[in-house]
């Protein structure tokens, strides 16, 4: 590694702190009592977290969010990878049209598909269920597109070598393409996870039962709970927000080490 340029490092630090400051501020706020906060005094309490989890059911919302976002990510990345592999390596009738259609989905604002999705799921009776939360999100045109571009960069002769070694096309996908696309797959998985985690409109529309609320829905409802005099209980909201952010941060730290490039080096001369 090159020695760091101290000026650049300093600038990066300042920029980092700048971006981080609202997060740090809200975490700090989540440890204040509501009275101290409005009086402008300094205090420390874990009571906000206790209330968010106990009184307002945030443990359940966290679990729901984890289940929904986790499954959407798992199923979504699997489908996206398989589609990307097919688009990258096979030419089949209608393939170009299908690929164009996949890319075209990127141009459709999600709000437009809201009502058709709602009506479809209502018809098959899947509203108010995990399946109803998950199904509309498992196809991801952007991930398929991105992974296809990445896979096209993997030398095709590696597939061919594997075929000569006796691999089937599924084995080529699983043993050659997937390991070599790990950085791209990890990035896309993270992207799908975060998108789903932050999804607000669809869970709001698709779910009525409190037991199925995700964190984003629970969080939005907290704004309506006032400690009196029309004031919002900001420390409580911030405690709930912190609960909402933490898994995403953890998820990022988990996949971060996979987000490195340059793995195909040394394949061909």
């Amino acid at each position: 590694m090159k020695p760091e340029n101290p000026i650049l490092a300093g600038l990066a630090l300042v920029a980092g702190l700048l971006f981080l400051s609202p997060v740090l501020y809200s975490i700090w706020m989540s440890f204040q009592t509501v009275d101290a906060y409005y009086a402008g005094e300094l205090g420390f309490t874990l009571d906000n977290y206790a209330r968010a989890v106990g009184q307002y059911n945030f443990a359940r919302y966290l679990l729901n969010s984890l289940i929904v976002s986790g499954l959407v990510t798992l199923i979504g990345i699997t489908f996206a990878t398989m589609a990307a592999y097919a688009f990258a390596r096979y030419s089949f009738r209608g393939g170009n049209f299908l690929f164009a259609a996949t890319v075209a989905t990127l141009m459709i604002p999600s709000h437009i598909s809201l009502i058709p999705n709602y009506l479809t799921l209502a018809k098959v009776g899947l509203l108010d269920s995990y399946a109803g939360l998950i199904l509309p999100a498992i196809s991801n045109g952007f991930a398929a597109f991105f992974l296809r571009q990445y896979i096209r960069g993997i030398p095709k002769v590696l597939d061919e070598a594997a075929y000569m070694d006796g691999a089937t096309s599924l084995q080529v996908l699983w043993r050659i393409i997937v390991p070599l696309s790990r950085p791209a797959i990890a990035s896309m998985a993270l992207y799908i996870f975060i998108t789903e985690w932050n999804n607000y409109i669809w869970p709001l529309v698709a779910v009525g039962k409190q037991d199925l609320y995700t964190l984003q829905i629970g969080l939005a409802r907290l704004y309506r709970i006032n400690p009196g005099e029309g004031l919002i209980d900001w420390p409580l909201v911030m405690a709930a927000s912190t609960i909402t952010i933490l898994p995403v941060l953890l998820g990022f730290l988990l996949v971060e080490r996979h987000l490195v490039r340059g793995i195909t080096m040394g394949a061909v001369k």
């Binding site: 030398p155 002769v157 590696l158 061919e160 070598a161 594997a162 075929y163 000569m164 006796g166 691999a167 089937t168 050659i176 070599l180 793995i263 195909t264 080096m265 040394g266 394949a267 061909v268 001369k269």
Partner: peptide, 16 residues
């Protein structure tokens, strides 16, 4: 896969 042939590629094609 069904031809029972082993091949050495001109540019090696090693699994990286």
């Amino acid at each position: 896969q069904d031809r029972d042939i082993a091949m050495i590629f001109q540019n090696y094609a090693l699994y990286p």
